[in-house]
Simulated scan of single mutants.
Amino acid sequence: MFRSLLLLLPVLWFTSCPPDLEVPPALVTVEGFELSVDNGQGAATTDITEVWAFADGEFLGVFPLPARIPVFRLGQVTLRLEAGIRQDGRSVTPDIYPFYTPFVRTLELSSNATVNLGRLPIRYRPETVFGFVEGFEAGTPRVFTDRLAGNGELSVQTEVVRSGAAAGAISLADSNRLVELATFRTYGGLNELPINVWLEVDYLSDAPAVFGVVGEQGGLPVRVFDPGFLPRAEWTKIYFNLSSVVGAADVNEVRIALSALLGPELERGTVYLDNLKLLYLPAR
C-alpha cells in the first residue's frame, strides 16, 4: 500500500499544476504609451517608464518599457495595462499614475505566440481636476505671480522651450540667489481624504528647486516644501506627488509654491519651466 502511494505522488503533483503553467506562455509586447489631450489640458509631454500589467484582474508584474510581458493565461484573456511613472523622479518609487486611463483589451492568446500592441493610446481620466495648466503661451494668464522671497520672477521667454512657442524662466545671480514664488490663486479642499494631489513639471535648470504649499493657520504662516529637482542640462519631466505635503500643511486653503536657489559654485543660472499642471481628484 505504501509503495503504491509513493508511485502515485508524482502523478498527483503533475496533475495538480494549473493547465496554463504546463505550456510556454504567450508573449505580449508593448513599445510605450501615447497620450492624447483635450483643450485645456496642456501639452502631451510624458515620462512613462514602466507598464503595470494585469490579466483578468490578476497582477502580472511591472515591466520596463519597451516591455515583453509573459502571460500564462491562454485563450480569451482581458489585459489591463497601466502607465507607470517614477514618483518625484526617483527610481525607488515606481507607481501607477492615477490620472491616466488604463489600456484594456481582450485578446486571444496562444502558447509561444507573440502579440505586439505597439504604443498604447491613453488620455487623462475624465474625473481629473486640472487646478491649473501653465504652458506660458501667449493669451493665457500667468499662474506663479506672487513673490514670496527674492526679487526675481517667472518670466516668459521663447528661446528655450519644451513644447509650444514659449516657456518660463527664473534668472538667478549673485544679487538674487533665492527666488520663491506662489500661485496667485488659492486652492481649497485639497486636504480632504483621500488626498491625491500631483504636480507635473517639465524643467531644464542650472539650479535646484523645490515645490510645496503655503497657507495660514490661526493667523500664522504655514510653509511645507518637499519634492524637488536637481540641475539638469536637458528637458526632463517629473511627476511630483504633493499629497504628503498637502497633508502635512493641514490647512483648508493653500497656494502652490516653488523655491529656486543658485548654488555657491555658480555666479548666475537659469531655471526653465514648462507644462506645469496641478492635478487632483474631486472629494468623494
Rank of each mutant, 00 (worst) to 15 (best):
S110N: 13
E34P: 04
V71D: 02
V51S: 03
E31N: 12
D20R: 12
P94R: 00
A43L: 09
P18T: 07
A26C: 01
R80I: 08
T49F: 07
P121C: 11
V77E: 07
S110Y: 13
D95G: 09
Y97L: 01
L21F: 14
V71K: 06
F59C: 10
A53K: 01
S111F: 02
T114R: 07
L79G: 00
R125K: 13
E31P: 03
F63C: 03
D38V: 13
L117F: 07
N112Y: 10
E58N: 11
V28G: 07
S111A: 13
D56E: 00
A55S: 12
F63Y: 10
G42L: 05
V28S: 05
V104M: 08
I122D: 00
Y100G: 01
N112I: 11
L74V: 05
I48Q: 03
N116M: 12
R123V: 06
V71Y: 06
W52I: 13
E34C: 08
L35W: 11
T114S: 08
V104N: 09
Y97G: 07
A83C: 15
P121M: 09
T29Q: 01
D47S: 14
W52F: 15
E58L: 10
A67I: 07
S91R: 13
E82Q: 14
S36P: 05
R125V: 08
R86V: 05
L107M: 02
R123F: 11
D20P: 13
V71W: 02
S110Q: 15
Y100A: 04
V77Q: 02
L65G: 05
S91A: 15
N39A: 15
E108K: 13
G40T: 10
D95W: 04
L21D: 10
L21Q: 14
P126N: 09
D88N: 14
F99H: 10
R73F: 00
V115N: 00
F103W: 07
D47Q: 09
T45N: 10
L74C: 08
E127P: 02
F59D: 11
F99T: 01
F72W: 14
E127H: 13
P64C: 01
R105M: 07
F103C: 03
V37C: 12
F99P: 06
I85A: 11
T114M: 11
F72S: 13
C17I: 15
T49W: 04
E58V: 15
T128L: 03
F63H: 04
R68P: 06
